[in-house]
Design a protein around this nucleic acid. Structure first.
Length: 586
DNA sequence: ATAGGGTTAG
C-alpha cells in the first residue's frame, strides 16, 4: 500500500494523453503492482488508470481495459471514467468494424454501471457513428428529461442516418436552441446535399439573432460550394471578416473550397496564400481546385511546393493530381503520379484512383491501355471503372468495346442508368438505330430511370434550379422568349445544332422532342434575361455537359459577349469569346 | 494527483 501511495503521483502524471512514454511507465507500474501483489482497488487510481488506458486510443490497451474491468473489479468506475472508456472505444470503433463501442457498453452494463447525461450523449454518438441509430433511439427514449446537449446528440444521430426530416421535427420542437444545435441542423442538411435547406436555415438563424460561430460558417460555405453560390459565399467571407470570426485552418480551407468550386480559383488561391497555418486538407483543396479549374501546371507546381514544405500527401491529394493530369491529357505525368503514390508514399490506390487512370488513358484515346489497366487491377473493378471506359468508347466511337464494358457493368449492376444512356448514345453516334431502340426498350422494361439533369444558377444571391424543359420556373415565358432570340442570333452566327444528338442525345438528359432544352441552356437563358450586361453567368450542373450544349454555349459567349462558367460533374468550363478553357477536351 | 457530453473542411 505504501508502494502504491508512492506511485500515485507518477500514476497521475501518466494519465496525460499525449505522452506515450508516461503511458509506458504507467503500464510498468501497473505490472509491478500486479506481480508484487500490491495492486489494491484504490478507486481513484483505478479510475485514473482506466482513463489513461482509454485516452491512449490504442486498441490493445482498450482491450486491456476490458480485461481489467472483468478481472479486478473494485467499486464500479465513476461516471467520468465510464464516459472516457465509451468515448475512447467509440473513436476507435471505425478501425474494428464498430465492435468496440457496443462491447464496452455491454461490459459496463454487466458491471452495473449507470449512466448520466454525459454518458448518455456519448452512447448516442457512439451508436450513431457505427450506423446503429435504432440503438441510439433506445438510449434516447430511456432518458426522462433530455437536455439541450442530449437532444442535439440525437438530432445529429438522425441526420447521420439520413433522416434529416425527423431531425428537423426534433429541432422544431426544441424548447431552447443554442449555436451548436443550430449548427448541427444546418450541417445535417449540408451533409445530405440539401444545401438550399441548409442556407435557408442559416438565414433563419440570423433572423432569430442566434449567435453564429466558425462551425456555422464552415457548413454554410460547404453549402455555397455545393451550389456554386458565389454571391452568398462572398457574402459569408465578408461576414466572417466583419464579425471578426477566427479564420482557423478549417474555416480557411472551406473558403478555398468554396471559391474554387464556384470557379473563382484566383480568390481561392488568394485565401490559400494568406493562411499562415495550413494542413493537408488545405493543400488538397487548393490542388483539387487548380485541377478542376484546368490550371494543371500550377496544380503540379503546388504539389511540388507541398512536398518541399514537408507536408505529407494522402490519397485525396493524388485524386486531385490524377484528375489534373487527366483533364489536361498528360498521360505520362499521370502514370508517374500513380507510381509516386504507390511506391514512394505507400498509399494503397482506391477505386477513385483507378478510375482516374482509366479516364486518363481513355480520354487520350488509348483505349487498349485503358482495358489492359482494368484487367491488371488488384481489386475488382466497380461499375464506375467500366462506365469510365464506356465513356471513352463514346468519345472514340468504339462500339465493340462499349458493348463489352456494358456487359461487365450489367454483371455488377443491372439497372445502371448512366451506362444505358451512354451505350444508347454510342449506337446513335454510329447510326445503329436497332441498338438504340433495344437499349431504350430495356430501360423501359426494367424501369431504369435516368438521373434528371439539373442546373443551378445564382442570381443576386438567390439560387434558381432548372430541370429539363424548365416549365416549373415562374419566369418560364421570358426564358422561352430568350431561347428563341438566342436561337435566331446563333443561327446568324453560324451555329448548327447537332441534329444527330438532338434526336438521340440521351447521354445525359432525355431529349424527347426538339422543344425540350437541356437544363443548362435554360439556366444560361435565364442568366441572359436577368443579369446585367457584362456580368459573368455561372452555372452548376449535376451531370456532364453534352456536346451540343457545349457548342451552343461557346457561341453564346461570343454572340452575347458574356463570360460563362459551367461547372459540370467533373470539372469547370470557362467560356469566353467563343472558346472554352477545356479546349473541347472533356 | 486525476478522468467527462452535442456542431466544422479536402
Amino acid at each position: 500500500m505504501a508502494l502504491l501511495k508512492n506511485l500515485i503521483p507518477h500514476h497521475s502524471a501518466l494519465s496525460l494523453v499525449d505522452n506515450s512514454t508516461s503511458l509506458r511507465q504507467a503500464l510498468q507500474i501497473h505490472a509491478h503492482l500486479l506481480t508484487s501483489g500490491a495492486f489494491t482497488h484504490d478507486p481513484s487510481s483505478f479510475n485514473s488508470f482506466l482513463s489513461s488506458l482509454a485516452l491512449s486510443s490504442s486498441p490493445p490497451l482498450l482491450s486491456y481495459s476490458h480485461f481489467l474491468l472483468f478481472t479486478s473489479p473494485p467499486q464500479p468506475p465513476s461516471f467520468i471514467t465510464v464516459n472516457s472508456l465509451i468515448r475512447a472505444h467509440s473513436s476507435a470503433a471505425s478501425d474494428h468494424g464498430g465492435l468496440l463501442g457496443p462491447a464496452i457498453h455491454g461490459v459496463l452494463t454487466r458491471f452495473g454501471c449507470g449512466t448520466d447525461r454525459h454518458v448518455q450523449s456519448s452512447l448516442i454518438h457512439m451508436y450513431s457513428s457505427i450506423g446503429l441509430v435504432s440503438h441510439a433511439r433506445v438510449i434516447f427514449s430511456d432518458i426522462t428529461d433530455p437536455d439541450l446537449v442530449t437532444i442535439t446528440s440525437m438530432l445529429t444521430a438522425l441526420t447521420e442516418s439520413g433522416d434529416v426530416d425527423s431531425a428537423r421535427e426534433m429541432f422544431n420542437e426544441m424548447s431552447e436552441r443554442d449555436t451548436v444545435s443550430w449548427n448541427a441542423m444546418i450541417a445535417g442538411y449540408v451533409h445530405l446535399a440539401r444545401s438550399k435547406d441548409g442556407l435557408d436555415l442559416f438565414g433563419e438563424m440570423l433572423n432569430q439573432g442566434a449567435k453564429v460561430n466558425e462551425s456555422t460558417m464552415v457548413s454554410v460555405l460547404t453549402a455555397c460550394a455545393h451550389l456554386g453560390a458565389l454571391d452568398q459565399g462572398t457574402w459569408v467571407h465578408a461576414y466572417i471578416q466583419k464579425n471578426r470570426l477566427k479564420l482557423n485552418v478549417t474555416l480557411g480551407t472551406s473558403l478555398i473550397d468554396m471559391y474554387s468550386k464556384c470557379g473563382s480559383i484566383e480568390r481561392a488561391m488568394k485565401v490559400f496564400w494568406s493562411m499562415k497555418e495550413k494542413n493537408v486538407f488545405t493543400w488538397n483543396s487548393a490542388i483539387n481546385g487548380l485541377a478542376s479549374n484546368g490550371a494543371t501546371e500550377e496544380c503540379l507546381e503546388l504539389f511540388e511546393l507541398m512536398e518541399r514544405k514537408g507536408v505529407v500527401p494522402d490519397g485525396v491529394t493524388f485524386v486531385g493530381l490524377l484528375q489534373g493530369c487527366c483533364i489536361a491529357g498528360l498521360v505520362q505525368k499521370g502514370r508517374e503520379m500513380f507510381s509516386l503514390m504507390k511506391d514512394q508514399y505507400r498509399i494503397e490506390p482506391l477505386h477513385e484512383h483507378y478510375g482516374c487512370m482509366i479516364d486518363l488513358y481513355g480520354r487520350a484515346g488509348k483505349l487498349d491501355e485503358a482495358v489492359q489497366f482494368i484487367h491488371s487491377m488488384p481489386i475488382e473493378p466497380n461499375v464506375s471503372a467500366w462506365r469510365t471506359l464506356l465513356h471513352s468508347c463514346k468519345m472514340y466511337n468504339n462500339v465493340e468495346l462499349g458493348e463489352y464494358a456494358m456487359k461487365e457493368i450489367t454483371n455488377i449492376e443491372v439497372n445502371n442508368d448512366g451506362a444505358h444512356v451512354l451505350l444508347s448514345n454510342i449506337y446513335a453516334d454510329n447510326r445503329i438505330w436497332k441498338g438504340v431502340s433495344s437499349v431504350r426498350e430495356r430501360m423501359k422494361e426494367r424501369g431504369v430511370k435516368k438521373e434528371p439533369g439539373c442546373s443551378v444558377i445564382e442570381v443576386h444571391g438567390v439560387v434558381h434550379e432548372f430541370f429539363v424543359r424548365g416549365k416549373s420556373h415562374p419566369r418560364y415565358r421570358e426564358i422561352k422568349l430568350m431561347l428563341g432570340e438566342v436561337d435566331r442570333r446563333l443561327r446568324l452566327a453560324g451555329y448548327q445544332a447537332n441534329t444527330k444528338e438532338v434526336l438521340f442525345d440521351i447521354e445525359e438528359e432525355d431529349k424527347e422532342d426538339a422543344l425540350s432544352w437541356h437544363s443548362e441552356k435554360l439556366a444560361i437563358a435565364f442568366g441572359l434575361v436577368v443579369l446585367e450586361d457584362g456580368v459573368e453567368i455561372r452555372i452548376v450542373k449535376n451531370l456532364r455537359v453534352c456536346w451540343d450544349c457545349h457548342h451552343w454555349t461557346k457561341f453564346v459567349s461570343k454572340t452575347f459577349d458574356r463570360k460563362i462558367v459551367v461547372r459540370d460533374r467533373n470539372r469547370f468550363h470557362h467560356f469566353k469569346d467563343g472558346l472554352c478553357s477545356c479546349k473541347d477536351y472533356w
